[in-house]
């Protein structure tokens, strides 16, 4: 066997049997861990697509200012070279960016809930239609899976669904409208997760 073939064989074996031994449950940790933030307009587009809204329907501050393209443009990593002279996104996340992100997501998820309530439902239909206890939990699981599918463009894992469904337990004693608040909250959790905000 030529030496380079031997090397390839050894490499292949080490990949199969190596110490990383990554599995579906344990994907390992990236050594470089290089991620980039989505600019607000990219995130907003993903959010709008996932929630079945137009981009300008996501969030309007005071009913006047578009949150993403105007009110929080720079905070969310946008640029505005013409009048502000900002032709590069901020090098580091703005200190208020996580708050602004929560704010936009709350507005967008709340808007989706109101529209689903008026019908026809796009995301929260199962929760709106479920009556009994067991059905309602199942409905929340269904909506949780749908949220991950629509906002993160992949299938949800069991743990993720459980994390979203369990939010209901945390809200039951503190919310006057637990179904509504759970729907908005679960939607926010997915929409403002690091996976939704970075790539």
């Amino acid at each position: 066997m030529r030496p380079d073939h031997l090397l390839l064989w050894a490499l292949g074996l080490s990949t199969l049997l190596g110490p990383a031994c990554k599995t579906a449950d344990d994907p390992g940790t990236s050594a470089k861990a290089r991620v980039m933030p989505k600019h607000g307009q990219v995130w907003g587009r993903d959010l709008a697509t996932g929630l079945g809204l137009q981009e300008w329907e996501l969030c309007q501050e005071l009913g006047q200012l578009d949150c993403i393209s105007d009110a929080h443009l720079i905070t969310l990593g946008g640029v505005e070279p013409t009048t502000l002279g900002i032709d590069q996104p901020l090098a580091n996340a703005a200190v208020s960016a996580p708050i602004a992100v929560d704010r936009v997501a709350m507005a967008a998820c709340g808007e989706r809930w109101e529209r689903d309530l008026a019908g026809p439902a796009v995301i929260f239909g199962a929760v709106l239609e479920a009556k009994a206890g067991a059905d309602r939990k199942k409905a929340r699981e269904e909506v949780s899976s749908l949220l991950v599918q629509r906002l993160l463009a992949r299938q949800a894992t069991k743990d993720e669904v459980a994390a979203l469904v369990d939010l209901y337990d945390a809200l039951e004693d503190i919310s006057e409208e637990p179904d509504r608040d759970w729907a908005i909250g679960a939607c926010m959790m997915v929409a403002t997760s690091t996976e939704a905000l970075f790539y």
Binding site: P27, G28, A33, A93, A163
Partner: peptide, 21 residues
């Protein structure tokens, strides 16, 4: 609970950007 359960967060948990966020 939710975020630590995502594969993305586990793989990129050492990212300075995620830590900052």
């Amino acid at each position: 609970v939710f975020e630590p359960a995502t594969r993305f967060d586990r793989v990129f948990q050492a990212s300075p950007r995620l830590l900052e966020w």
